[in-house]
Nucleic acid binder design. Sequence first.
DNA 1: CGCTTATTCAATAAATTTATTGAATATGTT
DNA 2: AACATATTCAATAAATTTATTGAATAAGCG
Lengths: 218, 218
Amino acid sequence: MDGRKFKDTIYTGLSKLLKALSNPYRLEIIEMLSQGEKSVEGIVQTTGLSFANASQHLQVMKNSNILKSRKEGHYVYYSLVNNELLYLYQHITKYAINEIAELGKILNQQREDNKSGDAVSLAELKEMIYNNNILLLDVRPPIEYKSGHISGAISIPMNELLEHLKDIPREKEIIAYCRGPFCVLADEAVKLLNEKGYKVRRLDEGYPEWKIKQVEII
Amino acid sequence: MDGRKFKDTIYTGLSKLLKALSNPYRLEIIEMLSQGEKSVEGIVQTTGLSFANASQHLQVMKNSNILKSRKEGHYVYYSLVNNELLYLYQHITKYAINEIAELGKILNQQREDNKSGDAVSLAELKEMIYNNNILLLDVRPPIEYKSGHISGAISIPMNELLEHLKDIPREKEIIAYCRGPFCVLADEAVKLLNEKGYKVRRLDEGYPEWKIKQVEII
DNA sequence: CGCTTATTCAATAAATTTATTGAATATGTT
DNA sequence: AACATATTCAATAAATTTATTGAATAAGCG
């Protein structure tokens, strides 16, 4: 193969992967699937896409080495191909937030609006977790908590938080987390708990970032 | 800003960056600019794009936080916005080569066809470089060597290699490198030097990968 | 077997991206 | 000032991606 043809083939292949990642719905699907595998129905419910449109997006992602699937009865479950893909996705999002001023500003504004501007980093959490006065709170839906969660976290889904306030000790400092840096469930939890007088901060990132750190692929 | 709007804004912003990266010519432009800044003319010559088409691609990249530019007389010079972008580009390419079987196969085939299958990694180079029997050869164009090169490398552009054979000691092992893992200049140099009876291998990566390792951003 | 349901496939419409063409702008030279 | 040159801008054409629609397929149930 001559050099020109080789480069064209390589760059076309790279471009195929990047195109498949370039759609906003698909990026959100990656965030969702980084919590654990999901059926098309689950993806449809969260994204608001039509069944056929979601399926089309999923096929594009599957044909571009982003997702894999398995079938069980009526249902097809999708998941990310591997942890390396998740780590790459995290690198992209972290780069964008840190280096693209507009995006960093939007995230900061969102955090401030919800009183979660003093988010805790994973490194900080690692130190804090030995403190008995810390309560780590997973506010994702139960099915996601069951797929995987940060060690030691308790599960109270955001939409049940109000009913479970009595289960939360007032003297503890709460660290709330959810799906990742753009997940608003933890922001909402911080806002609500703040209003109720609890001492609470959100985790800057989410379960998937913690997971990758545990896997220690680097 | 409500949660839905926030996520839409974030993912739209991420998608804009990824779309701007998703074109094969643009990926090659990034490889070129990772050697150092270049004028539009230089980009036109290497890519074969028309002036106006190249300019349009460059504007898209500039408006998506990938490139920056400066003007000097008639000429406009483009460069990557920062080392972090280059590091992200490298992560993407490394991921694709390692995890997408088709692409890995194409690269391996290219290496074998040019007798450069036993490429030297940067880590290996670091150990080898203290050996006086090693000659590090930069086969990129001189302007790129001048913009930046691996410490200790000598410059012989690939298209002048035949005329400079007499400058290369026969008892040394040569490590040839160029613009990155997809650059074929080093492959061509290995092929030629092999045929002339020299002991030669190529560096797996290129100057930009070396540079990022030096900067030690991680 | 007939009916129901989850998902994919195929075709078409709509939206977006990329290539092309030519004019406009900025800079340099005589 | 006129002319030349590098690049960008604007408009249009062509190519590609995404949304929509409805049929097809696979699996489950009575």
